[in-house]
Design a protein around this nucleic acid. Structure first.
Lengths: 157, 157
DNA sequence: TATTTTTTTGCTATTTTGTGCCAATTTTAA
DNA sequence: TTAAAATTGGCACAAAATAGCAAAAAAATA
């Protein structure tokens, strides 16, 4: 099992790396009051244990031509476990789907879809989403304005 | 203005860095068939132009004790522009709110909230969310299972 | 098409960072 | 208090980042 309990220094490292994954080990070490070598060892341990799952560049969506973000609620027909699995597998493969969760409530799945334009979304909706296995209802909520993006996880103790 | 059009190499760099922000400049250079110095210069340019907004470590939520992810739809009373702004400002400050968007559709805002437990969510809901300025309705959708997390943006051309 | 201008590239030299090793220190447990 | 285990800091070496500069490529001009 992953978790071998995190001390305060580990949590500070995690918080720092969430905010800026390009911090130098030397910089990190200074910020947490350690010398570089134990600092690096801690980071490597966090990586190896799976607590740090990876490092990603955050892009400006508009700059790369992705003007539209849509939050999509989808209902799938129940009673068929297989169908739900087929749906999941299909969704994972779609590059336009940035995020997907099985959720409680009105919809069964909640997706975050990113496309260049409304026209592209229309094509994606009718050409792809509606044809996924078992889909019975789709509700599209268009992002009008981001209020908070890439919030870092609140690390407690 | 940011966008001075991206060539194929820039897009490959962006895709690679989305997937792994810790790639060495030397590794990056190899993957895009450039020598290290022009490669580094391109990355620096992408950073300076704001196309790359930052680099972040992705953490395993469970490992850091954040067992619950909730997608929250919130309606706020209309007619008061000020109130909507007050709401936005308040939301940005809440560490439990990882993501927030103004959206079209049934709800006005869609938040992603991360907390350690159901008890913590209850406290957050009644103690914080419901007391935000102008809130008239809240709908909570609990993430039961992640289907796709941290999908990288689909870079087109 | 030839020529000039601009942009981008690749190489080299220097500085900075990452990484493994080991002794010293601190922490934990008995 | 003592013994065992874990963690730390410093050192040395390897690797990477970075700046400068001349050559090559691309774009623009005539």
């Amino acid at each position: 099992m992953p978790n071998s309990k995190l001390d305060a220094t580990d949590r500070r490292l995690l918080a720092l790396l969430q905010g800026d994954a390009r911090l130098t080990n030397v910089e990190l070490a200074e910020k947490v009051n350690l010398s570089p070598s134990p600092c690096l060892r801690r980071v490597r341990r966090l990586e190896a244990s799976g607590i740090i799952r990876g490092y990603h560049a955050e892009l400006d969506r508009r700059s790369v031509g992705l003007e539209l973000t849509v939050f999509v609620g989808i209902k799938v027909e129940r009673h068929h476990e297989e169908q739900a699995n087929a749906f999941r597998e299909a969704v994972v493969k779609l590059p336009e789907v940035v995020t997907a969760h099985l959720v409680s409530g009105e919809s069964d799945f909640l997706l975050q879809v990113v496309v260049p334009s409304l026209v592209a979304y229309d094509a994606f909706l009718t050409g792809t989403l509606l044809r996924l296995p078992g889909v019975s209802d789709i509700r599209s909520n268009f992002a009008i304005q981001p209020v908070k993006e890439y919030g870092i996880l609140p690390l407690t103790d």
